[in-house]
């Protein structure tokens, strides 16, 4: 119970830290957003006095000039935690409205990518370990390493170039067709999958190898364990040894990798969504960067961090269900 509170506390602390960080970056860094805004207004209105410019900047950035920096911080924090991320200067809509609408699409791509990456990685890694030293092992180890060294977005650009623009097999952007109405229908689901296919494929192909090699290494380690030898001599059936002994013990360490993957893949989604013009969180983050729309940019950053913290928290809490050694909680080391 203490452990649970500890974990929850850390998660909340992380989000508070992130929001504080974004406050610091927006308000305090010289040459930051406020200076940029000031410069922009000055360019558009050459005759304006600097007091008038400051007033305009404060109005646009929703800053109350009568407040001290601490008061500003408190009011920023409280509005963020009430779900108010400000108004997008580019779109003119509330930031949270834009991002809440985009979030499910990002999660959709992420979930599919993670699912396939780990399914392929675990399956392939197990077979490679089982056939250690064989031609199969050698070939797929090399293939895994090769794909692992291609940046996911480079593969994405290649797919876009070959499969979308040159061969016209896949859409060059968007997340669903206008012709298909949004709703819980098979047609819509297929259409969404069709649009998500290339981003997902870019992720899966460049990342499955890493998981496969990790699974291979873990399995080989387990194959050398005493308990495995004991299980064989006790005459346990092969299926039980494969799943309860090798499989389970080799997959467990991957769980930590999974947690880390959630973070890196979310980060990667930002770039892939921009490349595939797939309107998720990352796409809006880039729109915001191009338009110097700081509320939208920081909002996207906060939403992404919150989603990752929540995902890691979930993974952390459920880990105890599959690894009995983690039930104590405190002693487990995250690698």
């Amino acid at each position: 119970m203490h452990w649970l509170i500890n974990r929850l506390g850390r998660a909340i602390l992380t989000i508070v830290g992130t929001v504080s960080l974004s406050f610091v970056m927006i308000r305090l860094i010289p040459g930051g957003p406020l200076d940029y805004l000031r410069g922009q207004i000055r360019n558009q209105n050459p005759g304006m006095s600097s007091d008038a410019i400051d007033a305009l900047v404060e109005a646009q950035a929703a800053i109350n000039p009568d407040q001290s920096i601490v008061e500003q911080y408190v009011s920023y924090m409280s509005s963020v935690f009430q779900g108010d991320l400000g108004t997008s200067t580019w779109y003119g809509d509330p930031v949270n409205q834009i991002l809440i609408e985009a979030l499910p699409w990002t999660l959709f791509v992420m979930a599919l990518s993670l699912l396939f990456t780990f399914a392929i990685g675990i399956g392939l890694g197990a077979v490679m370990a089982y056939k250690e030293g064989s031609r199969f092992d050698y070939t797929f180890s090399s293939v895994s390493i090769f794909f692992n060294s291609i940046p996911y977005y480079v593969l994405g650009v290649l797919f876009l170039f070959v499969l979308s623009y040159q061969m016209d097999l896949f859409p060059t952007g968007g997340r669903s067709s206008d012709a298909v109405p949004v709703g819980f229908s098979v047609a819509f689901l297929l259409d969404a999958l069709y649009h998500a296919a290339l981003p997902v494929l870019s992720f899966v192909l460049t990342r499955f190898g890493f998981q496969a090699l990790a699974m291979r290494g873990n399995s080989i380690n387990v194959l050398g364990e005493n308990y495995l030898r004991a299980a064989k001599i006790r005459g346990l059936p092969g299926r039980r040894i494969a799943f309860q002994y090798v499989g389970r013990n080799a997959v467990l360490p991957l769980y930590t990798t999974l947690m880390i993957s959630i973070g890196t893949m979310f980060g990667g989604a930002v770039i892939l969504e921009e490349i595939f013009a797939y309107p998720g969180i990352g796409y809006y983050m880039f729109q915001a960067i191009d338009a110097r729309d700081y509320p939208l940019m920081m909002g996207a950053f906060i939403i992404i961090t919150t989603a990752i913290v929540a995902a890691i928290l979930f993974a952390d809490l459920t880990y105890g269900l599959i690894d009995p050694r983690a039930s104590g909680g405190e002693t487990r080391e995250t690698y």
Partner: peptide, 9 residues
């Protein structure tokens, strides 16, 4: 090495 002759899970 009897100490790890049991499956930890």
């Amino acid at each position: 090495g009897a100490l790890d002759s049991f499956n930890p899970t």
